[in-house]
């Protein structure tokens, strides 16, 4: 894409800003900030990736994956920031998912061990797992309100934390995985995924692009399951105090 063509893409932003002004939505500032941030972040990562692809040093690959995990953990953890220690648990869950998935992909020779493959695929795994974490935490927050009576009843009968929260956790894990599974059912019919579209636009054979997309869909399914399972297992105790009481409910404005 030429620089001129890139600059022309700003007309899409202008459309959004125009509608915001016309309809008095008051989103012009947000649109401007969003435009600048996405442009700067993407250009920055473009140059970073260019540098890493050039050097091809494993340390840089590890550093960039760690950065992705940390940013994703920070972002997903904001959904339940009152739960102390949740961000570190998310980081561990993401690292496990990334580690196991990458080990299978590289071990079975499904992708070649070059930064050009490892980094984008890692980005997709960590990004979608981050969304799974966010969904899981959102659902758990709702469960802490709606199923509080059931959990306290079980605690009152001498249940352990794990026994008391088990049903809520199972419902939350299910809820966090459903969008990924639904996505698998409609992919290609309703939406054409970004990676496949990108490859086709870049000149790849559509069938080859589809093969990679199938790989990605299956990876997403397993990583959603793995992330939800690991996060639920290592974080359920955080919803309790040290003496096995449920964490107090937050006032509505802090949720």
């Amino acid at each position: 894409m030429s620089n001129m063509a890139l600059i022309c893409t700003l007309c899409f932003v202008a459309v959004a800003a125009f509608i915001s002004m016309r309809q008095k939505l008051g989103l012009e500032k947000e649109i401007l900030i969003g435009t600048l941030r996405s442009a700067i972040q993407l250009l920055f990562i473009g140059y970073v990736l260019h540098f890493i692809f050039e050097t091809s040093h494993p340390a840089f690959i590890v550093i960039i994956i760690l950065c992705m995990i940390l940013v994703a953990a920070w972002n997903a953890g904001a959904k339940a920031r009152h739960v102390r220690g949740i961000r570190s648990r998310i980081a561990i869950a993401l690292a496990c998912t990334e580690g196991v998935t990458m080990a299978i992909l590289l071990g079975l020779g499904i992708i070649t061990p070059t930064p050009q493959y490892i980094i984008p695929v890692s980005g997709i795994i960590i990004g979608s797992s981050m969304i799974v974490c966010g969904l899981l935490l959102n659902h758990m927050k709702r469960e802490m309100e709606t199923a509080r009576g059931e959990m306290e009843m079980l605690l009152a009968l001498g249940a352990s934390e794990k026994q008391a929260i088990h049903s809520s956790l199972r419902r939350s894990v299910r809820a966090s995985m459903i969008p990924t599974i639904d996505g698998m059912k409609t992919v290609g019919l309703v939406q054409l995924p970004g990676m496949m579209t990108g490859m086709i636009v870049a000149g790849a054979d559509p069938v080859e692009a589809v093969r990679y997309q199938i790989l990605i869909m299956f990876v997403l399914a397993s990583s959603a399951a793995m992330t939800a399972m690991v996060l639920s297992l290592i974080s359920y105790k955080l919803w309790f105090t040290r003496d096995a009481r449920l964490l107090p409910l937050l006032p509505a404005e802090n949720q």
Binding site: M153, L155, A156, L157, G158, A159, S160, A244, R245
Partner: peptide, 14 residues
């Protein structure tokens, strides 16, 4: 807490 609650059990109104 589990041992305590097995001996001292609360029955809620609801």
């Amino acid at each position: 807490p589990q041992s305590w609650r097995k001996k001292v059990t609360y029955v809620a109104q609801k």
